[in-house]
């Protein structure tokens, strides 16, 4: 009898043990998200906030816009431009950090074991300071009377200072600098595990260096490359500080747009709807990651 009760009770108790985690996930993660979803179907209140009246308007506004001065609906090119710009800049950032991050990670992974920690430490140093402060530093480097332009003029490479600050290039420079470590670290982690004997074997079989890179190193560091790309892409697409401080805030990305809608736009439901669009893009990126980065099938041999 006692055994019987115990047998029945155990699964219940096991479930109880996971309860704290479930509560945290539900209350801390899903809860606020749910509020955002609900808000996106409400009507904006006067001077901010929401009124509890159901409306599809915000979702219509994501894709279509009513002409400012008439009533006809047209495709919301403004919104689509912002979405496209965010995705484009995030993709470019991912590609550039990939191109710069892979050799860096390879360099570190091929140092003697005792030195690697030092190099890794150097990579993580930027994380010791706040993002805003690092962005200020970049501002100071690229502005007209900044380090870069002063150096270029002194060296006689240019005669007029280059306008870099407040352009898309500046945003890109900022994002690449900020997110590079997020690429280097996972790539390093996968390269470090790479069995060097494979490289030797490839060379012994007369593979040229390029062929070793393409056929041995890259495939075996694939999971690191994909993890790094995801880690860079996701924060890059929701970047907020960089487009304002380096881009001058006149070519918005999705994060800025959402802030604007909640703040001066005073349209919380619309802001919620755009937030959900952003989350969907992030989710799509994660799905691609899960598909591509999961355990490899037998196809790769």
């Amino acid at each position: 009898m006692a055994q019987n009760i115990k047998g029945r009770g155990a699964p219940g108790r096991k479930w109880m043990l996971t309860a704290p985690a479930l509560i945290i996930i539900l209350a801390a993660a899903a809860g606020p998200l749910l509020i955002v979803v609900v808000y996106s179907f409400l009507t904006p209140g006067a001077y901010g906030g929401v009124t509890w009246e159901f409306s599809w308007d915000s979702w219509v506004k994501v894709l279509f816009e009513r002409d400012l001065f008439g009533d006809e609906l047209t495709l919301a090119t403004g919104n689509l431009t912002i979405f496209a710009r965010s995705i484009w800049l995030a993709l470019l950032t991912t590609i550039i950090t990939l191109l710069a991050g892979f050799p860096t990670a390879y360099f570190i992974a091929t140092r003697p074991r005792t030195r690697r920690d030092l190099w890794l430490l150097l990579i993580t140093i930027p994380f010791w300071t706040n993002l805003v402060i690092r962005t200020f530093a970049i501002q100071d480097i690229i502005r007209q009377e900044g380090l870069l332009n002063t150096a270029l003029i002194k060296l006689g490479i240019v005669s007029e200072p280059l306008q870099i600050l407040y352009t898309d290039t500046a945003v890109l420079i900022g994002m690449v600098y900020v997110y590079l470590p997020l690429m280097v670290l996972p790539v390093y982690a996968s390269l470090e595990k790479l069995d060097r004997r494979l490289l030797e074997a490839a060379s012994d079989l007369y593979a040229r260096p390029r062929s070793v890179l393409w056929n041995v190193i890259l495939p075996s560091s694939r999971s690191g490359l994909i993890a790094g790309s995801t880690l860079v892409f996701i924060p890059a697409i929701s970047t907020y500080v960089t487009p304002i401080m380096l881009g001058g805030g006149k070519r918005l990305m999705m994060g800025n747009y959402i802030e604007l809608l909640f703040g001066q736009g005073k349209d919380w439901p619309y802001g919620s709807a755009v937030s959900i669009v952003l989350m969907t893009i992030v989710m799509a990126a994660l799905l691609i990651y899960a598909r591509a980065g999961g355990p490899r099938g037998g196809a790769h041999g």
Partner: peptide, 27 residues
């Protein structure tokens, strides 16, 4: 007003509070 602002925007370097502090620098 809308047209005026749209046309003017191409001449703006930034739409930012901290832009004020950069007056007098080249930017």
């Amino acid at each position: 007003v809308h047209t005026l602002l749209k046309d003017a925007k191409q001449y703006w370097a930034s739409i930012d509070y901290s832009g004020i502090e950069k007056i007098g620098t080249g930017d």
